[in-house]
Design a protein around this nucleic acid. Structure first.
Lengths: 340, 340
DNA sequence: GCGCAAACTTGTCGCGCGTAAAAAATTTAT
DNA sequence: ATAAATTTTTTACGCGCGACAAGTTTGCGC
């Protein structure tokens, strides 16, 4: 096989062309003549040479790196979005690197620092929300082309892509009102994510529009253990008689899952048939919402679309330079199942 | 505030000490005199200088990078393990980078390539399993100190850390036999993960030991959509009369969740009380197993311990050089809940 | 105060590649 | 066949830092 290739110099020598041309090839394979490209790719098979990514990125004005940051990767929603985003980046020829803030402000700041030193072409960032260090994020956005997704933080970055929380809530509130008694809204008192506030507002607005009295139950709890917070909160709310009526709309599916567990523990049968005591609905289209017992009625994010839109918006901005800040909110789809 | 710092040279000048000393500080803050350290750290606050990570890693013999690779990040088990591993790495002063193979052999190979070019100090890798390219992995392990976790691939890498599937299965089989009729084993015919085979073997062994006839139901399906595979497979198995007895042990919790959905759809009440038709148990201690209805009886991984052991084993090997290959299997804890 | 080790400084080299400009070779159009 | 356009080569420099060697200062125990 011949001696091992140590650097681009040696590789170029082995192929029989000059190093700058090889360098050009790695920057963009289309930019060299087809015959040259073929020769390089043939040699690439023969010797398993790969350019040193550190040396590559050191002098490049703009790298092909893309950072993907989510607030909590163990949350299936973010895991799923992150998965699709990664795939889209790779397809577009970028090198994605995935980060999770694990719910920590400090970690989010550190990630921002790390990211800056990586000179990324762009960043897809879902902020922690309430716990985000605004100043740090604003400063970061000034230096790195950043697309904010999931939850909006003012008008930072080049654009925002997320779900249309008002539409989400309106659709399901409407559905619940049409098919039975109007829902009570079940949420966390101090949610990590600002989307929760929008959903509460949208619920109140929709209820008033439909001529019903809104009724919000906010349960205490901090952090990302939503199911347990909902389970405990639900028990307390039931005992305190806060759950009026027989229909509960949860601010998200994870809360709904925890609430359903509490219902089970209290012997309350969940479902939309006559023999059931209570109706439950969620929002998000959690990967496991199909598999709860009974299967959960919810409004599902259009995961593919959100990710696709976020990725393409970023890539366009990278190609064509910064335009005016814009916000895209994607509608969800009502998924009618058995809980409501 | 003074002019912006562009590189270590300028930073050192601003602090009033020499560049090599600053370099030494970043390599190991303890290695410089306390007074010098204080001066550097004071300046670090003033100017927000960070060394260029590409230039840093280019010439270092051994970086502080650690790669973490999991087969499928949208699986809550891996999301949770990855989360803890990342934290441990940061605590130990390493810079973790997270990768998910997304269930794809090609992607796993690419990650291995990327990782090699990152010159990581070490790698924590959970292989795809059946779909892993053995040769590529073996070759990788020869070049990079790799700790394999979750599912063992021969004796590759410096060590293996995982769960004790035999103990897992024995414990729960024993429990099920003692508290009711012996279980049928429910699994995927072609599981992605080799642990599944061990669990089947362990089930058969345990059943024979306890004097019962083992009975395995293997359902068809490929990929990582375990719940749906289990749901469909369960329906078919019920219809074909393959589910003998009233107790089902699932190869993992995600299958159990899907199977419970099927039971719900068939009107079969799951639980361990007299009014229930069927008992179900799983394995893994899935984050949502507490919240199924009824809550799922399972054998839980000791997530913290597995991650801790994996991390410390790698770090020890990095400090003290390669020792003989060793394998650690950590026991799980029976979590008795309401399904069995 | 002495002596000595640890910590620091100065200076210099090189890593592997990006990048730029000018010269040479090749392809394409006329 | 010749001119024009494109691609490739040559040459040269620099990025920001790690690593090393040799000399200088500092801190510390006696």
């Amino acid at each position: 096989m011949g001696a091992k290739i140590r650097n681009m110099e040696e590789f170029a020598a082995a192929v029989g062309i000059s190093r700058p041309t090889v360098s050009k090839y790695f920057h963009d394979p289309e930019s060299v003549r087809p015959t040259t490209r073929a020769r390089i790719e043939a040699a690439l098979e023969k010797y398993d040479y790969r350019p040193n990514i550190f040396a590559m990125n050191q002098n490049r004005k703009l790298t092909k790196n893309v950072g993907i940051v989510v607030p909590y990767l163990a949350d299936p929603f973010f895991a799923e979005i992150a998965r699709i985003l990664e795939t889209r980046c790779i397809e577009a020829g970028y090198r994605p690197t995935l980060f999770s803030s694990h719910g920590s402000t400090e970690l989010e700041c550190e990630i921002l620092d790390t990211l800056r030193s990586m000179k990324p072409a762009g960043v897809l960032l879902a902020p922690l929300g309430r716990a985000t260090d605004r100043k740090a994020l604003e400063n970061f956005c000034r230096h790195v082309p950043t697309l904010i997704f999931d939850s909006s933080v003012e008008e930072f970055g080049i654009a925002f892509v997320g779900s249309d929380n008002f539409q989400f809530t309106r659709v399901i509130t409407d559905y619940l009102c049409r098919t039975g008694s109007p829902p009570v809204f079940f949420e966390m008192k101090t949610p990590a994510n600002p989307n929760a506030h929008r959903r509460r507002q949208a619920y109140i607005q929709a209820m008033e529009q439909f001529g019903h009295e809104p009724h919000v139950v906010s349960v205490p709890g901090e952090g990302w253990a939503f199911e347990e917070i909902a389970r405990r909160g639900a028990h307390e709310a039931f005992e305190a008689g806060q759950i009026t009526g027989d229909t509960i709309l949860c601010s998200n599916d994870r809360l709904a899952i925890g609430l359903m567990t509490a219902c089970y523990e209290r012997g309350l049968r969940v479902g939309r048939t006559a023999d059931c005591a209570i109706r439950v609905a969620g929002m998000d289209g959690h990967p496991l919402s199909r598999f709860t017992c009974p299967p959960l009625t919810t409004v599902a994010h259009d995961y593919e679309n959100v990710a696709q839109k976020a990725a393409t918006t970023l890539f366009e901005a990278l190609r064509e330079g910064p335009g005016p800040w814009k916000s895209t909110r994607i509608e969800g789809k009502l998924v009618m199942r058995d809980t409501a």
